[in-house]
Simulated assay, not measured.
Amino acid sequence: MIRARPEQQVPLDDRGLAYGDGLFETVLVRDGAALLWDEHLARLSRGSRVLGIPLPPANELERLPLQAGPGLHVLKFILTRGSGGRGYLPSSAPTPRLVWQLAPFTPQPQRWQAGVRARHCRLRLSIQPVLAGIKHLNRLENVLARREWSDPDVAEGVLCDSGGRLIEATCMNLFWQRGGRLETPRLEGCGVAGTLREALLERLALTEVDVGPEALIEAEAVWLGNSIQGLWPLAQLDDADGTPCRRWVIGDMHRALQVEAHALLDYPVSFEV
């Protein structure tokens, strides 16, 4: 059953609805405990500073995952600037609006085990350093990129920015091992700094790099990951026309990073089929 705040209707003049003027977080909750909660709150705080939207009281946010009950759930909450202002000019004293929902969640262990197929997207992400890293509500580029394919066997799309640099997948971060070194794209111009990515950067020798898509072809192993799904090894990468350009055999090299990531999410660290 999906749980949501009963009175949470968003009026037409809400700035999040009208302009994407807001932030959101999507959090894995296990038995009422939010995973990577500190990382989610840190990113929300960064976003609130960038957009100038006051945060709700800490206790208002902290009680949200407690309502999930037993089992796995996904908590999604959206913080908008609220209503008011004149056109694009926001109010100097905003009254933020917080809406949320909790929904049961089942991960996809077959993707942990066998890996996934992804493809390059034609769409290029706009470079805007002010918004880089935060999870704001303007996600039209990701929506357009996701419309580029309908094949259910393709799990994700790989995105570059307008300068040709690797950035992310449509809803996951990218990681790879190349020449024995773990790498992930630097996100100073665009992209979402995922909470699982942040946690791995703090714990591992994971290097942020500015590279083009050729880095994936050169990699010994590639992963797609976020704080909801965990890490999916990449078994096949296609170009934007659907033609395979690299395949990988999923093995021990892939499992090592999965073990580190899944320990943070209380997911299985054994991947026997």
Rank of each mutant, 00 (worst) to 15 (best):
Q8A: 08
T207C: 11
L216S: 11
V259A: 05
G180Q: 05
G225F: 05
T195Q: 02
V222R: 13
L237Y: 04
G133H: 10
D252K: 10
L264A: 00
V259L: 00
Y88V: 07
G69Y: 12
M172L: 14
V143E: 12
E25T: 03
G85T: 12
M1C: 08
V116F: 00
E260F: 03
Q113M: 01
F175H: 06
E7M: 07
P129W: 12
V27E: 03
V99P: 03
P11T: 09
W100I: 02
G20S: 11
Y88C: 04
F24P: 06
N59E: 15
V259E: 08
W37H: 08
N226M: 06
E25N: 04
R165A: 11
G47V: 06
L201C: 08
D31S: 10
L200G: 11
L35W: 08
R197G: 03
L98F: 08
A215S: 14
F77W: 10
E148Q: 15
G84C: 02
V50I: 04
E168T: 04
P94F: 01
M1N: 12
L166Y: 04
L72C: 00
L265V: 01
G212S: 03
I127Y: 01
V143K: 08
M172H: 09
A155H: 13
L28C: 01
V74F: 02
G194F: 08
S126F: 01
G32Y: 06
I134F: 13
A205E: 14
A68W: 01
L102T: 02
G85P: 00
D241L: 14
D210Q: 12
R178V: 14
S92W: 01
I217K: 14
G133L: 09
R197A: 06
G225L: 02
A221R: 13
L182P: 05
L234P: 10
D38M: 02
P57C: 13
W37A: 08
F175I: 06
T207F: 11
G52W: 01
D252L: 05
R139E: 13
P244K: 09
I78S: 02
G189S: 06
P11Y: 07
L204F: 03
L89E: 09
V74K: 12
E202A: 15
I250N: 07
H120K: 09
D13R: 11
F24M: 11
I167R: 13
L55C: 05
W37F: 02
M172D: 08
G71S: 10
A34Y: 04
R146W: 12
T243L: 09
G251E: 08
L17F: 15
G71T: 06
